[in-house]
């Protein structure tokens, strides 16, 4: 993981007003072997980064709808064009909501069906291990990462859901129990090209032993989220 190519991979992490997890995302990039680059919501400039993470939080207080106002931020304008051109983009939680509002990913998130904020260690099944952000996993693998949100119920019309399933664009499903009423247990999806991935759970909080979810290795020892960040480095090196 310490090759020169990996060490020079620059992964942008966007900060909006109200973003909470930008520092955790930057730390995850660093632990995977990449170089995090801070990107500011008001700058229409991606600083030549090789990939971008839209982290979680409550951008603009989630006013109007989660992600609705961030979608019109100058940095998102340039990001949309770059993503359509193939730039790897990962949206986590609020970042996923921004990606749907920007129409880079279909569907939307509404309030959890039980109306409560959820904070738990969530088991996911990896459904698609061929995207830019999941190629270090295996299809069918179960991973545990934190889930924490109030507006986490993924919805889309039946035709869109069938399309996502048919094209293998469901990347993660909630395993064991559906925590928020998401259609077809969908936790994360990708675009047709596989470079844009969005999910509600938080892989960036499961990247370092001692600070992650419980795992077979021990209390807080889970690092199942690290694979997202090593995957994108693998993608960048092999492209």
């Amino acid at each position: 993981m310490a090759s020169t190519a990996l060490a020079t991979a620059r992964i942008g992490v966007v900060t909006f007003p109200g973003t909470l997890d930008d520092r955790d995302a930057a730390r995850a990039v660093r632990l995977a072997g990449g170089r995090p680059v801070a990107l500011w919501h008001a700058d229409a400039d991606l600083q030549g980064v090789d990939a971008v993470v839209l982290p979680g939080g409550f951008s603009y207080g989630d006013y109007l709808r989660a992600g609705a106002i961030s979608r019109f931020a100058p940095v998102v304008d340039v990001l949309v064009d770059a993503a359509r051109g193939g730039l790897p983009v990962l949206g986590i939680c609020n970042g996923f909501q921004v990606l749907t509002e920007a129409h880079l990913l279909p569907g939307s998130m509404i309030k959890n069906d039980h109306l409560h904020f959820v904070c738990r260690e969530q088991v996911l099944t990896v459904e698609n291990a061929e995207t830019a952000w999941t190629r270090d996993y295996a299809a069918g693998q179960r991973i545990t990462v934190p889930l924490k949100n109030q507006d986490g119920q993924f919805v889309a019309d039946e035709r869109t859901l069938d399309e996502l399933e048919g094209e293998g664009r469901v990347v993660f499903r909630y395993a064991d129990a559906n925590p928020n009423g998401s259609r077809r247990d969908i936790a994360g999806i990708t675009n047709a090209a596989g470079n844009v991935v969005g999910l509600m759970p938080h892989p960036e909080h499961a990247v370092e032993a001692g600070f992650g979810p419980a795992s077979d290795a021990g209390h807080r020892a889970g690092t199942d989220g690290l694979g997202f960040f090593t995957s994108v480095l693998t993608t960048l090196v092999s492209s």
């Binding site: 109007l64 709808r65 609705a68 106002i69 019109f72 749907t100 509002e101 279909p106 569907g107 939307s108 509404i110 919805v155 889309a156």
Partner: peptide, 8 residues
């Protein structure tokens, strides 16, 4: 464009 999300 802003006040509603036509998906939902």
């Amino acid at each position: 464009t802003l006040l509603s999300n036509p998906v939902i």
